[in-house]
């Protein structure tokens, strides 16, 4: 059954009609057109759908859309401000941390949650924070480098 759903995404308010069983990922992508968050598995095993709920990393494919009401939702589309990339995004591009780009939005959101909480993480903390974000292209090497570079303002 469809009900009114109110979401705050990237500081904008949205109101849509949605079935109560819809996941946050489905609503973000199909109803709001925010296709930056990806579905890599649909079972919470790859991290490509990672978004922030009140600043914490969450898997949008395992989150019911209605349970995200009243929370501040941040997606990859909300990171760049006035066309200026977030430092993690900027480092990702400059350090060659992006290849096919499908996993990129997910790990960037995981990294943002980490750096917001812990601005100067250790390498192991970085690896742990993104250990739920699978990547088949990069071997994670330059992803890890870029997150550390962003944390050091490089």
């Amino acid at each position: 059954m469809k009900r009114a759903l109110k979401l705050t995404v990237n500081d904008e308010d949205y109101e849509v009609l949605a079935d109560t069983h819809r996941t946050l990922l489905e609503v973000l992508r199909d109803s709001l057109g925010l296709t930056g968050s990806k579905e890599g598995c649909g079972f919470g095993a790859c991290g490509a759908c990672t978004v922030l709920l009140d600043g914490k990393a969450n898997l949008a494919c395992l989150t019911l859309a209605f349970s995200a009401q009243g929370k501040q939702i941040t997606t990859i589309e909300g990171l760049a401000v006035n066309g200026k990339l977030h430092p993690i995004q900027d480092a990702a591009v400059r350090y060659g941390a992006i290849q096919c780009g499908f996993c990129t939005p997910g790990w960037i959101m995981s990294a943002k949650a980490l750096l917001d909480e812990k601005p100067k993480p250790t390498e192991l903390e970085v690896k742990t924070a993104i250990s739920g974000n699978l990547c088949r292209c990069t071997g994670y090497v330059k992803i890890i480098e870029s997150i550390i570079a962003a944390s050091e303002g490089k």
Binding site: R29, T35, L85, G101
Partner: peptide
């Protein structure tokens, strides 16, 4: 060390994959 020319699109989520063609 040249950054990929499609890097920004992929870092911001604007790069569209086949399923994003709605």
């Amino acid at each position: 060390r040249t950054p990929k020319i499609d890097g920004v699109a992929k870092a911001t989520g604007s790069a569209r994959f086949s399923r994003d063609m709605i």
